[in-house]
Design a protein around this nucleic acid. Structure first.
Lengths: 133, 133, 133, 133
DNA sequence: GTGGTCTAGACCACG
DNA sequence: GTGGTCTAGACCACT
């Protein structure tokens, strides 16, 4: 698992960490039940403070993506991830609306937008479809 | 033009303002050349600080969505909006990637995601489908 | 609002703060919409670190008891408090079960337990019932 | 005696163990004089550390619920359990107050609360109501 | 060795 | 002046 943190970004480090880990899960590089590095070791690896890592882990725990085991530290949630329920879909729409509004202003059609979405989707499923066949 | 500001939101007010105006443009409620309310009146209407409105207008100006004249104040850019160039598309992908990653983790398929995108797109083009025909 | 913090207690300070504020709401000393002290001033008043106060406020925010306004700081949630839904009742039962189990072992009857509950309830509604009459 | 340990819980494992055993006593599944499993076997059964079981047993001993002999190991206190003295009642009230405060905030009446208490009480006395008659 | 808690001090975004 | 973020270092509870 390769984590890419941009210390200069306006996006908070702990948010970047959360995103990185969720993307790792989506890419199936991080599998259910898999242990995450301890806050100390990850902080050392990234050259950041352990509290920053801790905050990211706690957000992921609260969102249901990881469990924080008493002895083992943090592990990817072994059983189930949170579902795409109505509440989530509403939140997603709230997040997408400004992006789509700007896309429209810049003359991007719905089809172009869907192509971009499709591209990103395919980035997360490289080498998967064949395995089922 | 109805502006909806949520003071409890984690999204900064000036960002909400920027989003609201871009959405107004996308919805064609704000037309090229149209004047925006003065900083003072909009701040009074929304019960927020002058600086906040000013900051939003400056961002929109910098992004090329509005022009700021001494006389007229801020107007929707009368000539051209910024294009969906490569730089923009890269930025858009950066913004969409974490959203799509979470959607994948929650079991949302590419098709479902495109349906949601389509829905939002259609919200911005009510009553103008005929224009393409 | 008088806050009583026991620095020697095994209960974390931020938890004591959360309890204190919820009890203040229950006692109607803290009314909906009322502003809480800023994290800095409360931390100074109690002689603790502002981060500890911050953590307490964030928990209360997450639980829906306070709103954190962008300019005003923290205020008691002006509209509605979280409800006693099924999920809450299950959590409450989980918290009560060990207490009641020990009470049973010590020979306390259901009636005695209810008397104690009633006493605590009445501590939160001193001087209220008369106002309705 | 079925012990249910939740490794993901925020409640320390030794505390969960203490609760489980006290609940077993309250449910009369564990009778006075009955031997508890050895530290070693219980730790093995639950897949937890020896020290953790040991700590739980020591707390129970200190509270007067079990006796620890060199030969037999730990046994449920054969003679008398600790009483519901004033000191205990004060502690109980301290533990209940925050729970009741939150219940009040969530709109739960004293009657509703007593119903829940009654339900939990009845869970501990299944099949023994006749003994009082 | 793990995370949890607390302290202290700093800078920044926001309004 | 407000909370948000990050750092640094410390102690403790748990296992």
């Amino acid at each position: 698992m390769l984590l890419q943190i941009d210390l200069q970004s306006e996006v908070p480090i702990y948010t970047q960490l959360v995103h990185n880990i969720i993307e790792g899960i989506a890419r199936k590089e991080l599998l259910p039940g898999e242990a995450l590095p301890s806050v100390r070791s990850m902080a050392a690896d990234l050259g950041i403070n352990l509290h920053t890592v801790n905050k990211a882990y706690n957000i992921l725990k609260q969102d249901g993506f990881v469990q924080v085991n008493r002895k083992q530290g943090a592990v990817i949630h072994p059983a189930s991830f949170p579902l795409a329920d109505e509440q989530y879909q509403l939140r997603l729409q709230e997040q997408m609306r400004p992006l789509i509004a700007e896309a429209i202003c810049r003359g991007m059609s719905s089809e172009q937008f869907k192509v971009i979405s499709e591209q990103i989707y395919s980035q997360f499923s490289i080498g998967e479809e064949k395995e089922d066949g």
